Computed example of a mutant assay.
Amino acid sequence: MKTELRVAAYAVCVRDGEILLARWVTRDGRKLWTLPGGGMDHGELPVEALVREVEEETGYTAEPVALLGIDSIRRRDRTTRLGRPLDWQGLRIIYEARVTGGTLRNEDGGSTDLAAWHPLEAVPSLDRVELVDIGLQLRRDRPPVGHSHLYDPANG
């Protein structure tokens, strides 16, 4: 079975009771809200990936202010483009960040199609990936080892 590791950096940007989210378009066309961020390029530092990805997906310049934690997700039900079984793992580095400039806009031609601020109390009603909940939990609890209690050992 082929294995693949993807390392990515994400931002939890909260201001005035709202969180900045990007809407991810899945391979099958579903649209789910997620934290702005994404995969690191080879040789790129995680904080550089975070700044680049937030700008690409939202139009904003972001400044990382704290490392909240590192999350890992594993999917054994994926296949390669040739249809072979794939054991995929995503390592997600999650930062608290603040917007320091730019103008809100949507990504053009990327993996997301919309960027928006959402009231924190509205998050539970959004169609979203679990990373949003993990990021908010890490921001709220600030666990000393950067590990959310939302972690599922059977999945990771």
Rank of each mutant, 00 (worst) to 15 (best):
G39V: 08
G39H: 08
G39T: 10
M40Y: 01
M40I: 04
D41P: 00
D41Y: 12
H42F: 11
H42P: 12
G43N: 07
E44F: 05
E44M: 04
L45A: 15
L45P: 04
L45F: 09
P46L: 04
P46H: 13
V47D: 03
V47W: 03
V47K: 12
E48Q: 15
A49F: 02
A49S: 10
A49I: 00
A49Y: 00
L50E: 01
V51H: 05
E53V: 02
E53Q: 09
E53K: 04
E53S: 05
E53C: 08
V54A: 07
V54S: 06
V54I: 10
E55W: 11
T58W: 13
T58G: 11
T58M: 14
G59K: 11
G59R: 09
G59D: 12
Y60Q: 11
T61C: 10
A62N: 06
A62E: 05
E63K: 11
E63A: 10
E63H: 11
P64L: 13
P64K: 15
P64N: 15
P64G: 14
V65G: 07
A66H: 14
A66K: 14
L67Q: 08
L68Q: 05
L68Y: 02
G69Q: 05
G69D: 10
I70R: 15
I70A: 13
D71K: 06
D71A: 09
S72L: 08
S72K: 06
I73L: 13
I73M: 14
R74N: 07
R74M: 08
R74D: 11
R78N: 01
R78V: 00
R78Y: 06
R78T: 00
T79M: 02
T79S: 01
T80A: 03
T80V: 03
T80K: 02
R81M: 03
R81T: 03
R81N: 02
R81E: 01
L82A: 10
L82P: 02
L82S: 12
L82D: 13
G83S: 00
R84H: 04
P85T: 03
L86T: 01
L86C: 00
L86G: 04
D87N: 13
D87G: 09
D87T: 09
W88E: 07
W88G: 01
W88F: 14
W88H: 13
Q89L: 10
Q89K: 13
Q89N: 08
L91Q: 14
L91I: 13
L91R: 15
